[in-house]
């Protein structure tokens, strides 16, 4: 067991534990903090795969900006008390069955796919480096890249229309 493997297992356990805590915590603020921990451990995985750009973006955008937004919303709505409404037992059961079915399908899909035979390129390969990413983005994927500007522009116009005071 070398250092990479140890790191991989450590990060995987951390990510899974964090994700479980997000769902099971009673206090919403704790949930958000656990989610941040999960994002950091996933970023660690990206670094192991030599995808540094993705790792940094994941931390800046998700762990940074979006989680701060989450915290703000939770605190503004004053949800920090454990004011979870009681849910219907049948609803819980239905959710459990539906989620369990999806889990079953995914496990079956992963088990029979060829992915189990493929090994990830750890510490090698330069696909995830910024240089290669930029080249791909501005050559092969330049049309979708430009088109996404329409999406952002429409989101900005929408934000002004919805948010501006009459």
């Amino acid at each position: 067991m070398n250092v990479t493997q140890i790191l991989f297992w450590f990060l995987s356990v951390l990510a899974l534990f964090g994700a479980l805590m997000v769902v099971t915590s009673k206090n919403p603020v704790h949930s958000v903090l656990w989610l941040i921990a999960t994002f950091f451990s996933i970023s660690g995985h990206y670094i192991l795969l030599n995808a540094q750009f993705l790792a940094i973006v994941n931390i800046i955008v998700y762990a940074g900006a979006i989680m701060v937004l989450f915290l703000f919303v939770i605190m503004l709505m004053n949800l920090n008390k454990t004011t979870e409404p009681k849910k219907n037992r049948w609803l819980k059961l239905a959710g459990g069955v539906a989620g369990g079915c999806l889990l079953l399908v995914f496990i079956a899909a992963l088990k029979s796919s060829e992915i189990t035979q493929q090994t990830a390129e750890v510490k090698t390969g330069d696909i995830g480096l910024i240089k290669n990413l930029g080249r791909e983005l501005f050559s092969t994927y330049v049309v979708p890249f430009e088109i996404s500007s329409i999406l952002f522009l429409s989101a900005m116009v929408g934000a002004v229309v919805i948010g501006k005071k009459e």
Partner: peptide
């Protein structure tokens, strides 16, 4: 990729128009 972008470009302005 284009399908996803297209569906999103349709959906996001619609959320706004619905709440206009």
């Amino acid at each position: 990729l284009i399908l996803f972008l297209g569906i999103e470009i349709i959906s996001i302005p619609l959320y706004i128009l619905t709440g206009s």
